[in-house]
């Protein structure tokens, strides 16, 4: 396996939400999460709405300040760095957003949007800036002459290309892709997914690919982490997760994805009910209210993420029991 890029240790993010009558509620969006990201890989992070996957991504980039935990890069905890020193890390870590309409300022031309990162990082020579903008634009498949257009003059797919170019112009090592194809049409998704794969190879990128779409995650990832209500419940190599999913939630998730082939008749694992309220976390495993294989201890003891097989981690009392 390649070398370690980043290690996330016991990361937590708690939001305090103020209710109407001044009553404060705590929401543990990310709850004691630990994992590693290796150089050059794509780690897929899947989970359903509100499971905390986007919050986790934003905490890693310090777009949100985590409540506790550490992120180790180059042997130091980047969460403890003062803002001035952290700015060096900013250019090494970038993000691509889901909504190609909200992620580009409507009053800037594509050129100005792509030039912005260079200006922020002090590139004073306008000729160099022009060259670099043109280079990255052609890499992501944007026509140079279209760069004087405003975002609303581009199609959704083209806008997403601008978003990718903006993230890559500083030549980062690590890119968080937060649902980058979810807002796009089916026929455009493939263009963007292929582009991301190509760029990963040519620019030696590491991706954290956040998505709710298991088919997309399977296509692009090397390893996959499954999240449920703020916790990672399983991490493994891609093939391993799809061939031998261990956590009951992962299994239900996999069985729920419709497959575009009427000949394949699978056994559906239908979960009961909805996820419980995130504001009143239950003791024990957070999945136990919907789990088909729950045991008595599941409602009492929170399972730890344990290694089961080489590189296969799962947080469930069914495995590695004492």
């Amino acid at each position: 396996m390649s070398s370690l890029l980043m290690e996330v240790r016991n990361l937590s993010k708690r939001f305090i939400v103020e209710e109407e009558w001044g009553e404060k509620l705590a929401l543990d969006a990310v709850n004691d999460v630990s994992f590693s990201i290796f150089q050059g890989e794509t780690l897929g992070l899947v989970g359903e709405t509100g499971c905390g996957k986007s919050t986790l991504g934003r905490c890693i980039l310090r777009l949100l300040e985590p409540t506790s935990g550490a992120i180790i890069m180059d042997g130091q905890d980047i969460l403890r760095l003062p803002p001035r020193e952290f700015k060096k890390y900013r250019r090494r870590m970038q993000i691509v957003f889901q909504d190609p309409f909200a992620s580009l300022s409507p009053r800037k031309t594509a050129y100005a949007i792509l030039e912005e990162p260079l200006l922020i990082h002090g590139e004073k020579n306008s000729r160099i800036r022009r060259e670099r903008v043109q280079e990255i634009a052609s890499r992501v498949g944007l026509e140079i002459k279209s760069l004087s257009n405003y975002p609303h003059e581009f199609s959704g797919g083209q806008r997403q290309r601008i978003g990718i170019a903006r993230a890559l112009i500083l030549q980062p090592e690590f890119v968080i892709c937060d649902e980058p194809v979810s807002a796009l049409d089916v026929s455009i998704q493939a263009q963007i997914l292929n582009l991301l794969s190509e760029l990963q190879e040519t620019m030696h990128l590491t991706y954290l690919f956040i998505s709710h779409d298991l088919s997309v995650v399977r296509h692009i990832s090397n390893r996959i982490a499954v999240m449920y209500m703020g916790k990672i419940v399983e991490i493994a190599e891609k093939e391993e997760i799809f061939s031998t999913p261990l956590h009951p939630y992962t299994r239900a998730l996999l069985a729920s994805v419709p497959i575009p082939d009427p000949k394949i008749k699978r056994e559906r694992i239908l979960l009961e009910g909805d996820p419980p309220s995130p504001f009143q976390p239950l003791p024990g495993c957070r999945f136990h209210t919907r789990c088909l294989l729950r045991m008595d201890m599941c409602a009492e003891i929170t399972p730890e993420l344990k290694v089961i097989d080489h590189g296969h981690f799962v947080a469930c009392h069914l495995y590695g029991g004492e």
Binding site: I95, S105, I120
Partner: peptide, 20 residues
């Protein structure tokens, strides 16, 4: 908006984000 978040991710200062 995401484009403000993108600016933060790029390391832009508050002044720059507000002004530009």
């Amino acid at each position: 908006m995401d484009y403000i978040e993108a600016e933060k991710a790029l390391g832009a200062s508050h002044g720059r984000i507000i002004w530009h």
